[in-house]
Design a binder for these strands. Structure first.
Lengths: 95, 95
DNA sequence: GTAAACTAGTTTATTTTATAAACCAAATAC
DNA sequence: GTATTTGGTTTATAAAATAAACTAGTTTAC
């Protein structure tokens, strides 16, 4: 079979966008990711939780002044998963 | 927002594989597509129906000898949709 | 100072999707 | 003839995405 399976965790528009953002920066906070992806907070919360559970990102919750702040970072595992997802996906895209 | 929406009809592993196959050949029949994509007949039947309803592919049912044969072709609309899907998706893939 | 609105999320419910299982009609194999 | 295979479709179930509702606290406007 020429079409390799695509990691279902990454084959989701929002989760892929989150990973795409995080792969190109050291870390990003919840609000920033929400703005960049144009997602709702609820949806983002769920998808971040999934990526975190899978070990693709790490999530840290702190306070900045009196406001809560959720900061996300991609993990080594996440980088690997993203890279092989992209590699597999390329098969589908080139004619 | 930097991440453009990905056509949900194409952002599905099996439907994308079907479109990927069809974009590089004049036509392909059901059995061939099932083999190449490694999908089950039931799943493929459903996804072909969706692509057909969307006007992304055309489906022709004939008989070869006494056996039924379902032949699929990508439409102009389908080519356009696939190309813009790939274009939008690239944003997510490059760091 | 207190009511209204806003921030930063989480949780729960609903809708949609993907997948699997069951089925059907005809053909071929035994 | 009946068992199996072929080429599918239909229906049921599982999983996912999304939206709506809610929480907990903060800031702003009177």
């Amino acid at each position: 079979m020429q079409y390799k399976a695509l990691d279902p965790l990454l084959h989701s528009q929002l989760r892929l966008a989150v990973m795409s953002l995080l792969i190109s920066m050291e870390s990003a906070d919840f609000v920033y990711i929400r703005e960049q992806t144009g997602s709702t907070a609820g949806n983002l919360s769920v998808q971040i939780e999934k990526l975190s559970t899978a070990g693709y990102i790490s999530v840290e919750k702190t306070f900045v002044g009196k406001k809560p702040k959720t900061t996300c970072k991609i993990t080594n595992k996440g980088v690997g998963a993203f890279e092989s997802y992209v590699k597999n996906l390329q098969q589908y895209l080139k004619p």
